[in-house]
């Protein structure tokens, strides 16, 4: 079901509340064509043609719009919800790059001055600066990059919300010899989707907090599925990387790293899994969290790194 065109705004945030949660495949549209077969489209926030931080080597990265978690520390909160075409941003755009036509906000990229005012002011944690693509169109977009990249990473938002689209995109990417990685919050039950894992080389999984209450406090969601996925993906050789953001006094980062180490220790002897220890940074974070959260010390990061190393992660990186 496409969400564009629905008159009611399902994600309209009431005063003091977080946006509603997206359901799987909700960001995708499958319009019926005259010929019959459905063409999948997905809303994309950004395509990077080269990235050194989204998996091994140089990769293209596709950032989908829409996430079912709404983490307090999210550094690109404008990717969380879908645009409702409420028009608020149209009035504030200093470049005249946003217009409202037939009830829909349109983004004129050539006029955009990238001042980011629209995303800072959006009342819905969305962005008007998105584009809808088919998987084939994304492949066309990155065709010129092919000699210089080894793979494609899908991220977000939450890429697994676009499960059908990702599966199709990965099939096309594989045909071009690219490796395929998902950067996921782990809310999707990967154990039930062999078809997807057949075209996905690995998942870079966020384990934001091991403690259930902390996880709920941060994301609004349970960590049950995330942990199940960590074990399942490690078991089938598809766990590329674990990521934990360290936020002192808000999350027990060292404890999370410790527990994740204990949980995955049986797999680490045979498998090379990277652990990325990420320092919380206020850049891009929304109010009121920006004022509330603070960055960890170098010592704290080192302590987490040592814990992960002791459990035998192949590579432990502090970012």
């Amino acid at each position: 079901m496409g969400i564009r065109g629905s008159k009611e705004c399902p994600y309209l945030r009431k005063e003091g509340t977080e946006p509603l949660t997206l359901n799987r495949n909700e960001g995708m549209q499958q319009p019926e064509t005259a010929e019959g077969p459905k063409v999948l489209r997905a809303t994309v926030n950004k395509i990077l043609h080269h990235s050194v931080v989204d998996g091994p080597g140089n990769r293209a990265a596709v950032f989908f719009q829409g996430c079912n978690f709404h983490c307090a520390y999210c550094h690109n909160p404008e990717t969380i919800a879908m645009c409702t075409s409420c028009g608020h941003c149209v009035d504030i755009c200093p470049a005249g790059a946003l217009t409202l036509h037939d009830g829909r906000v349109r983004w004129l990229q050539e006029l955009c001055c990238e001042c980011d005012q629209c995303i800072h002011e959006c009342p819905h944690l969305a962005s008007p600066r998105t584009k809808d693509y088919t998987a084939a169109e994304i492949m066309e977009e990155i065709r010129k990059d092919l000699p210089f990249i080894r793979g494609l990473t899908v991220s977000g938002g939450e890429c697994s919300l676009q499960r059908d689209f990702v599966a199709e995109l990965f099939r096309l990417a594989k045909a071009e010899g690219l490796s395929t990685l998902m950067d996921s919050n782990g809310s999707y039950d990967y154990s039930q989707d062999r078809e997807l894992l057949a075209v996905c080389d690995g998942v870079m999984l966020d384990i934001k907090a091991f403690d259930e209450e902390e996880h709920k406090k941060l994301t609004g969601q349970s960590r049950e599925m995330v942990l199940k996925n960590a074990v399942y993906l490690a078991g089938c050789g598809k766990l590329e990387e674990i990521r934990t953001v360290i936020v002192p006094d808000y999350l027990s980062g060292a404890e999370t790293v410790e527990k994740v180490g204990q949980m995955l220790e049986p797999y680490l002897k045979e498998q090379k899994i990277r652990y990325k220890i990420i320092a919380y940074r206020p850049f891009g974070v929304r109010a009121p969290y920006k004022e509330m959260l603070h960055s960890p010390s170098a010592e704290e990061l080192e302590r987490c790194k040592e814990i992960a190393k002791a459990y035998g992660f192949a590579e432990v990186v502090i970012i």
Partner: peptide, 16 residues
């Protein structure tokens, strides 16, 4: 930033 991922520069060289 490139220092974090030298393999990415190797990919560029391979392509070129």
């Amino acid at each position: 930033t490139a220092k974090r991922n030298p393999a990415a520069i190797v990919d560029l060289i391979k392509g070129a």
